[in-house]
Design a protein around this nucleic acid. Structure first.
Lengths: 131, 131
DNA sequence: TGTTGACCTTATACTTGCTGTAAGGTTTAC
DNA sequence: GTAAACCTTACAGCAAGTATAAGGTCAACA
């Protein structure tokens, strides 16, 4: 299977696939006579796994760990559970930060006249002394 | 005022301040005889403005626009309002994405035995065929 | 058979927003 | 006097790709 087919099947960009190979996140596939990469079903599975793990918010390095766990028949599900639990906590923290930002911006919006006047409390607030 | 004092007053790292200067986000301050940067009160204000805008989630390029609006006496508050409204929308989108990720991960967690057994539905789910 | 267009390859640079490091000059405190 | 704590520059690196250039290959159509 050629790289563009793998791209279609996994949803990853062909460039991203080559990038993952360049950072040794996935095995280098064998090459055809013409130098083209020839992917096996297994290679496609691996890349599909990565696509999903990335969509779930795992970093590349976390993906390395997940891939290793995937192929390890002696893995303990508790380890996977721990990783995912931590990721959920990260996401929660991130959500809280965003909500706080949103709240502050919304308060500013409510005070801005939203017209042709230069007076704008948003700008004033940003320009205000250190708090 | 020296750069470390500015760093203390604005909450920015001295390196970040030099970085902002290097990308022409702020004016280059004059130098003392020994080559040290000498900041005016205005320079500090500008950097404090940036600190806050960055904390509110504006990108460097959005900060450029905000700085320009700040110094423009003919600005229309509607323009600022529009920028901030868009930013709030971005944040909302981001929050929704994170919530969706969290939901999916939480569902996986509930099905993972969290013990010494290698059977783990999280890994299986990641490894499952394209969906 | 020629050629066009869509693919494949590599290498390198760019992105965002900094942070770290090296190598040196200056100032301050004891 | 000297050691610590500053200041300066320049360059390299981080995540996680994306863009570009310059070229090789392949499939279809006239």
């Amino acid at each position: 299977m050629k790289i563009s087919d793998v791209a279609k099947r996994t949803g990853l960009d062909a460039k991203t696939i080559r990038y993952y190979e360049s950072i040794d996140l996935v095995d280098s596939p064998p090459r055809r006579e013409n130098g083209y990469r020839e992917y096996s079903e297994q290679g496609v599975q691996q890349l599909g796994f990565l696509r999903k793990a990335r969509k779930f918010g795992f970093s590349i390095n976390e993906c390395r760990v997940l891939l290793a766990l995937w192929v390890n028949p002696n893995r303990r599900s508790a380890e996977v559970h721990g990783l995912v639990t931590e990721k959920v906590r990260d996401i929660d923290t991130h959500i809280l930060e965003l909500k706080s930002m949103k709240k502050m911006l919304s308060e500013l919006l409510a005070q801005c006249p939203d017209d042709d006047n230069p007076n704008c409390s948003i700008i004033s607030k940003l320009a205000a002394g250190q708090e």
